[in-house]
Amino acid sequence: MHSDLRVTCGVEPEGVAGSTPDALAQLIRALSAPFGFFTPTPGVLEGLNLSRGVFSLLSDRQQVDFASVNQLAQAVSDLESIHLVLGHIDSEEFAIWCGLGKNEGRVHLLDLMGMIDRALIRVTGAQLQLNFTQYRPSPKALFRSLTQLALVGVSCDAHQLQRAWPTSARKPLSTKWKSQYESVKVFKDNGTLVEREPSIFSFQLKWKGVGSTDLAVGLLRNHLVLDLGGVRHFVELPAACSRMEPGVVQLFKNKMTIDFTVDESEWPRS
């Protein structure tokens, strides 16, 4: 589904100062330094930089620019990370971190989560334009960035890319790279848990071409963390997985599986 957002990658982004981003988002940003808002959760939020593009996505502007495809992917990943952490924060903790009262904290927390939800829906339906006038990455680097972008749910029209390429290159894209770019598919799967053998279950996720990526996979509470060069996407696991022990991840050409073993002590035989 398309949204009203147009995103251009390859253009030096302007500041968002004049675009009136939501007052709440500014409040959180201003409070984050003195209160160390993000330091109580160093794991998933470590290294996030709110000025790197997150606020551009949170703004209500219809045109947003990013310096590169990778920066757009990173900003969407950062938004997802913040949303996941906020989803697990107790509203009272949030209120204390922000120096707000209990009720204000709860309302602002829900506002912020709703705002991030809307921004994520907008960016995944955005019309993406690539601009290679100022800077053209190597075909290989661009392929990696487009794969990162696909991981966070944003697609790029390969034909648009081919039209944009000649603005900076004498040579057209080779057939090999055209076909590589066309092979990049947006990650959509929510996964399926299947019983492989007694006491061993397998959580399966389909994503075309995943076997040729250097994907790292981790667990965070009840979510699977898929990390491709620092760009992360989170998949909620079935509740049953919380009482099972995770095993190895297997990457196949077009799917991945994560084994979970039933912990007998959690499920005593009657």
Partner: peptide
Amino acid sequence: ADEIRWLPVIRS
């Protein structure tokens, strides 16, 4: 609570 537990990955 937000520490990521990374899992071993095997490529087939």
